[in-house]
């Protein structure tokens, strides 16, 4: 087996390692493919579908699809961008995403993807679900209103923290993150130093008493779109 795989991404010839996922190979070549459930250090999950690209004309999740020689990948066609915007609109309409008072605002990946893909208002009717906030833990809170079910906390807790604090329960629209206890977060071994906290892309799993620490204008996505740090690699 050769040491590199040659494929085409957005018209450019790219060298990738065998077995590498398209999303990672693209990233190394300075091409940003948007993602929410994908998280560095975790096994790919393939659930948010934001990273969908076309491979030889066929839509595929680039975070779970390994590279193959001669693949022709398109990552930013107008159709794909429309499709991504629809996913984002569904996520915004499905939960209760009140950016105006959310501590994560400005550093939120869901919001940043909305900015990147130019979402101004979802075309879908808002669901306004009744969801719970678990503030039982002294240092952490879990706000289900903001959760997008990316499973990053579930997987980080299990694979990186070695704890298994979070799981999914129920199915369909009733699916939610639950904690490993009949009690609430306070009854688990979750700790404020767990990597699971930093893994949450939205404001669902947050440290208490540090909200709004960074002023507006200095936050992660105030001036530059999400992914621009990856794209900057290509222009260098």
């Amino acid at each position: 087996m050769s040491e590199t795989v040659t494929l085409t991404i957005d018209g450019a010839e790219i060298q990738a390692k065998p077995g590498q996922m398209i999303l990672v190979a693209a990233e190394e070549a300075g091409i940003y493919i948007p993602r929410l459930c994908h998280y560095k250090g975790l096994k790919p999950h393939g659930s948010c579908r934001l990273c969908t690209v076309t491979v030889n004309g066929k839509p595929m999740a680039s975070c779970t699809q390994p590279v193959a020689p001669g693949m022709v990948v398109e990552t930013k066609t107008e159709a794909l961008n429309q499709f991504r915007r629809q996913i984002l609109e569904m996520l915004f309409a499905e939960g209760n995403h009140y950016c105006m008072f959310c501590e994560k605002s400005g550093n939120c990946e869901l919001q940043a993807q909305g900015y990147r893909y130019g979402m101004t208002a979802p075309r879908y009717p808002f669901q306004y679900p009744m969801r719970d906030i678990d503030a039982s833990h002294p240092d952490i809170f879990l706000d289900h209103n903001r959760c997008i079910l990316c499973a990053r906390c579930v997987r980080t807790s299990k694979d990186l923290d070695g704890k298994n604090v979070f799981q999914f329960v129920n199915r369909g629209k009733h699916k939610r993150v639950a904690v490993d206890s009949r009690a609430r977060l306070a009854g688990t071994n979750a700790n404020v130093t767990d990597q699971a906290l930093g893994a949450c892309p939205v404001g669902a799993l947050m440290k208490k008493r540090v909200g709004y620490a960074v002023p507006v204008g200095q936050r992660l996505y105030d001036h530059k779109p999400i992914g621009s740090e990856i794209e900057a690699k290509a222009s260098r």
Binding site: F92, Y98, A121, F126, Y128, R131
Partner: peptide, 19 residues
């Protein structure tokens, strides 16, 4: 034109929507 989060997504007043 919808101006602001209340017009586009209900905003703070919409927090009563589940009640």
């Amino acid at each position: 034109i919808s101006v602001g989060d209340c017009a586009t997504m209900g905003g703070i007043p919409a927090m009563r929507n589940g009640i």
